[in-house]
Amino acid sequence: MSYFLQLVVSGVVVGSIYALSALGFVLIYKSSRVLNIAHGQIIATGAFITYALTVFAGIPIVLAFLLSMVITFCLAMSVERIFLRRLIGEPIISVIMVTIGLMSIIDGLIYLTPFGSENFSFPEFLPKTPIAFWGVSMSWTQMVGVVITFTMIGGFTWFFKKSTVGISMRAVSDDQFASMSVGISVPKVFGLAWATAGLTAAAAGGIIGNITGLNFDVLHSFGIIVFPVVIVGGLDSILGAIVAGIIMGLIQQFASGYLDGKWGLFGTADVLPYIILLIILLFKPHGLFGIHEIERV
């Protein structure tokens, strides 16, 4: 039983981190219908900024973590302002191609720094002794990661449901022209969507970096790893990102825990999410919680 419980706890931990990583995709898509291919690079940038502030500038890690979110918020907003604002109204494929270009630019810039090709790890600030209960263990890093993830997800859910800005963002997502006609600034909403996505990416980068260590290749690959989560949950649904994230985390743990090593099977945790993705899309092409728009001509 404790084995099962351990897999559940680990699945929820991993799944919540997937959800936080996926949130950046959702925030941008929800308001601007753009899929940001460079999201993994922004996750890595956030992690490296936290490290640089802590180790090179000597700022306490908690403060550095918060500061990195602020910096990435501003950086992502600038990226939108410089590269993407001019593309409002252009075909969506052009915007996606720009995010692919952005990915290469960020890659190139990071390779100019030691972070591109060296390994680092955050200074350890949490107790090393794991938290143990009912025969289940988890590290303090994982616990803090889960708390941050759920706090941020809760905050964004409230933001989109209750705040004026959040409702404006949803309105822009539904209909840009109608939003403009009631006085909502669409460019500002796009900027804010990118900025908040940057903020969540920095948070995700900080948490993932604490779990895996800081290696650029590992960090930016999370932009791809969470892709099934984004699609399964529905590209425009925060709730979808949470549910799909946790489902994927649990599937991976159960697959690895119960299937690997039996009948000559290995690596099922890598394959199963994509099989589930295909099955779900077969029945729900917009994902579990994605909005199915009906156009009347």
Binding site: Y3, Q6, L7, S10, V13, V14, I17, Y18, I208, I211, T212, V218, S221, I225, Q252, Q253, F254, A255, S256, G257, D260, G261, F266, G267, A269, D270
Partner: peptide, 21 residues
């Protein structure tokens, strides 16, 4: 006992627990 080819895992709990068992 086992030969595992890893993926891009964020967590190896299931594998490690299996090893332990």
């Amino acid at each position: 006992v086992e030969i595992v080819e890893h993926g891009k895992d964020l967590d190896n709990t299931a594998m490690l627990k299996r090893f332990q068992s």
